[in-house]
Design a protein around this nucleic acid. Sequence first.
DNA 1: CCATCTTTGTGCACGCGTTCACAAAGGCAT
DNA 2: ATGCCTTTGTGAACGCGTGCACAAAGATGG
Lengths: 264, 264
Amino acid sequence: MATGRTHRPATRSRGIPEATVARLPLYLRALTALSERSVPTVSSEELATAAGVNSAKLRKDFSYLGSYGTRGVGYDVEYLVYQISRELGLTQDWPVVIVGIGNLGAALANYGGFASRGFRVAALIDADPAMAGKPVAGLPVRHTDELESIITDNDVSIGVIATPAGAAQQVCDRLVAAGVTSILNFAPTVLSVPEGVDVRKVDLSIELQILAFHEQRKAGEETTSAQEPAAAVQPRSGAAVRTPAAGRAAGKGPDGDVPAVMPA
Amino acid sequence: MATGRTHRPATRSRGIPEATVARLPLYLRALTALSERSVPTVSSEELATAAGVNSAKLRKDFSYLGSYGTRGVGYDVEYLVYQISRELGLTQDWPVVIVGIGNLGAALANYGGFASRGFRVAALIDADPAMAGKPVAGLPVRHTDELESIITDNDVSIGVIATPAGAAQQVCDRLVAAGVTSILNFAPTVLSVPEGVDVRKVDLSIELQILAFHEQRKAGEETTSAQEPAAAVQPRSGAAVRTPAAGRAAGKGPDGDVPAVMPA
DNA sequence: CCATCTTTGTGCACGCGTTCACAAAGGCAT
DNA sequence: ATGCCTTTGTGAACGCGTGCACAAAGATGG
């Protein structure tokens, strides 16, 4: 899962809770699938299962949008698809720029999900002059110098950052200065943006680390029953114990092959 | 941000709240950066700023791990790096397999962040026979037939799914059957897994849709001040007002251009 | 050794999000 | 029309997460 949401401390935008907004795309996807199978109506129970949530939660979520169901019957699939699409702002066209056309940026550009619902890749931008002009996913890569004019000319308000961590903040600043007010950040950095700009981040290594935590916990539960009491965490094996001071030397140690790029 | 977290209704694993676990990688990254600049100690205030959170929250988060700070001074950077790494299970090696070596899968394989901290790409797996043997990011792509043996032989417990949506559940089932207990899913589908298996999902289009929602709201606030009162959302252009029952026929109405491809 | 200053660790209160459980509402059969 | 059955919409309770604000703890200087 992308983690995310910076700024806007869970603002209940126009009555719709942030948590609900985050689930609407999920419902929409499930509904679209039903629509393709020409299913006319669906109950909260069925839809909830398809979306992987609790039916009570789903009904409450929908209640924030209005009363779109029919008691005793369920929800009209097509109607709901439209309502949610409209609520999410997907009935209009959103031009998007992707900055940083490396492996990830190229993958994003090729990703079908982009174009599918209201999003249109307006331009691919990269700082490498050698990339300029080369076609990626059918679009010619533009040089960073053109960033501002591209944003302005295409009226872009959503930007995707797929650059190395080091360049992210700078790119972000330029995007914002040029008029972008929503940013999806794939670079492993905390971006600071002015009030009114939304940032969401997708961070692979954070997700993996969270999984590792749970994985470790599972493994620990099998072997050791109740490892350490309370203040537990502190002590450790004798010799190899890296004291705060000693630790520093690492970084090129155990995993000396770590590409210096992209911290983690 | 990757969204996510399936199953495990916010279990407070060993006393550490899920929300805190999700922030530990953030702190770790900030601390690693400080460590590289040889900064010996850091205050909760400074570190919080670097990680983009509130200092009180940070202190509370750390309090779940133990009392690792020194009042009047702050936290020892190296020591904290080690403690958090250990808590997240990053002091051990986690072999990972990536299934689905398309654009995204290849990008992930090349992503440095993988190897950097305890994670090692054990194998790249793809269903396309033509891909088999071809080197990607220095590793030969293996065919799906080998999936089970690869998992078993390398003792893999974390799997990354980067296949098309249609194949995701099937791949997931096989991974789980072979012994994987943590899955990072990039495919736009809800995966169902047995108890005890953790799934986190990273979904580009969901993130974009959430941004679009806020973007639309911003745009709406500028022009219209207080659009509609409360029960608001419902009404719309006269004739086209679709009642729940009438709705069915719609879907091709006002916005008849909605592409039926790739749900969202 | 004492006073002062800094920064941690946490008790407490508040608000969001989730879930339960049920009354209201509509369809359908008789 | 009437009654039964299904499913929605929501009031209310609960629990997690956040942030305030302060007491405790340690460092530092005289």
